[in-house]
Design a protein around this nucleic acid. Structure first.
Lengths: 335, 335
DNA sequence: CTGAAAGCGCTAACAA
DNA sequence: TTGTTAGCGCTTTCAG
């Protein structure tokens, strides 16, 4: 049972493939006879025809696929991926998810592994891949929108200004009475130029305190938990803890709970990203909520526009996150 | 700056496209002269060549794309998607994520929307889409592996026997002293034939108790929370709560905490799926852990095999989940 | 309004 | 060892 092609339909209808194509793509709604059109449509349905998109892509140069690049789909990124799917659903585009960075030798990645041809790329928190791609793809022409807390400004981008969120978190903890505010982070956050850590350090200094970094091995819950446990065992806990992300904040809260340390009274905690988990803990966790829906909507608008107007001027947006104060840092007032 | 093609390379090297193709696909490693080969390789690199996969797919009939079908990428499904990506990473395949079911008129979906051509499909908890697809694609030939708690047995499948997990959960709660064990579920779980609910009912009856269903509007945390709050306000709480999934269990715990009801002493709670969140609550949540890694590995093995051997006999596996007892249901012994 | 012809970029026989 | 030819399934001028 071979796949049904345009030619099969044409043969059965007694017309040419060209005509069938025009009918089926709708490009001939006003220049193909009503009778022929309906006949074609009927036969197409009867035969269960569906077009070979690879063939179509070959001639049109459009695949109607959009790639979402991310390092992983875990945690916060899965939320973004979901929102992105919501954005694309009404469109004619499909989503190809590619995990770029994790590839062991991603420097050579784009030269070796031929990625699936897409009409556009949304690169989520993966500036390195984007740069590598740009360098490797001099001749290619696929538009990229760089998106997230880590973005690239050499192209269209939708950034999230987490630095301002971190600053707000530090100020908030200060107002709640914290006088020794530490930052629980990971090697990633320690890299030079990391907006979160730098904003933390700057704000803390500005307020007359000394930056204090707790650096875990990675940024998972377990890493956060272990690092805070270790600090507790050293008898060296701060009274405020601004975390790199929600995962680490959750781990930190777990550790504090295990040690019998009161949250927020002894140690106040804030997370970052706004994953739903933070809301559902018995002591809900204060966090910096990323504007995911706006992010995805804007990115998709930019990308759409860029696909249609390759030479349009650069599109850029910086989105502000929102500090959502909850139980893990609120010392006065209602629970 | 046009895209570089095989012909460009051939021209520059002074050979034919066929030869270049052979070199670049490695299909000529032993039948192309070393000199030519190296020359081709050098020029390809210099020109920044990367193949047009649509063209290749058109002639080979292989796209090297695998589709992951899911209703959503939220919660548990994002974990599976991640594991699936881990499986495919070493392979040459890319992942196309398609959210099939949510499409408003998915009955007609497969006839209208031409899905991207893939070499195989992994359908996660989406039996309806699979059936619709099979019905609509009589002539097509793309292998599908049905996967998850809701699977289809007319094809290759890797199922997870959540029913046995639910049974274990009920027995466990009974052993912990619960004598009025309710099931917190959603309309989805109420559909006839739903393994979880049926296993719950059967086990409860078998143990001499009466099934008691708390049906929320959907299966989210908030739905779980609201439903349990309502039950509490009616003064009608059971002493054991077996939940449809972890999301609802988390919501339930939240509600109980808000009402000042002790977990597990007054109400013991179990979830289902094994999402990491359950572990990190101050009172960690007992759950039925799905064997995600095995699931993905097996599914990928099946699919690979099917792609290479379309006529191989049906491949099928039923995986057992594991009840992981934690704080939310353990009344005796250590925390 | 419809069909013939050309070709998208690549691979796979088959010849040379 | 290499080149020639044909064609994957589709769209797109351009004639009719």
């Amino acid at each position: 049972m071979r796949k049904v092609t345009l030619r099969d339909i044409a043969k059965e209808v007694g017309t040419s493939p060209a005509t069938v194509s025009k009918v089926l793509t709708g490009r001939g709604d006003d220049l193909i006879g009503k009778e022929t059109r309906e006949h074609v449509l009927a036969v197409a349905r009867k035969l269960g025809y569906s077009p070979n998109l690879a063939a179509r892509a070959l001639v049109t140069g459009r695949t109607h696929c959009i790639a979402l690049w991310a390092e992983t789909l875990a945690d916060f990124h899965s939320i973004v991926a979901n929102a992105f799917m919501d954005q694309l659903r009404p469109s004619q585009y499909e989503i190809v998810i590619t995990d770029v960075v994790k590839h062991p030798d991603w420097h050579a990645y784009f030269q070796r592994t031929p990625l699936w041809p897409v009409d556009g790329i949304i690169a989520l928190d993966s500036p390195h891949s984007v740069r590598a791609y740009l360098a490797a793809s001099a001749g290619r022409n696929v538009p990229v929108v760089s998106v997230g807390a880590y973005y690239v400004t050499e192209m269209d981008y939708v950034g999230v200004d987490l630095a301002s969120g971190l600053e707000a978190a530090v100020r908030h903890l200060y107002e709640e009475g914290c006088r020794r505010i530490a930052h629980l982070t990971c090697p990633h956050g320690m890299r030079p130029g990391d907006g979160r850590r730098e904003a933390y350090e700057a704000t803390v200094r500005e307020m007359g305190m000394t930056p204090e970094l707790l650096v875990a091995e990675q940024s998972s819950r377990e890493d956060g938990r272990r690092t805070v446990l270790a600090a507790g065992e050293r008898g060296d806990l701060p009274d405020g803890l601004v975390c790199f992300n929600d995962e680490m904040a959750i781990g930190a809260c777990k550790a504090l709970h295990e040690m019998g340390v009161a949250v927020p009274d002894r140690v106040a905690v804030t997370g970052c990203d706004g994953i739903p988990d933070t809301e559902y803990f018995p002591t809900s966790i204060t966090t910096i909520v990323q504007p995911v829906e706006t992010l995805c909507r804007t990115a998709w608008e930019f990308l759409r526009h860029r696909i249609e107007h390759p030479d349009a001027p650069r599109q850029a947006a910086i989105l502000q996150p929102e500090l959502r104060v909850r139980g893990s840092s609120r010392r006065r007032g209602a629970a």
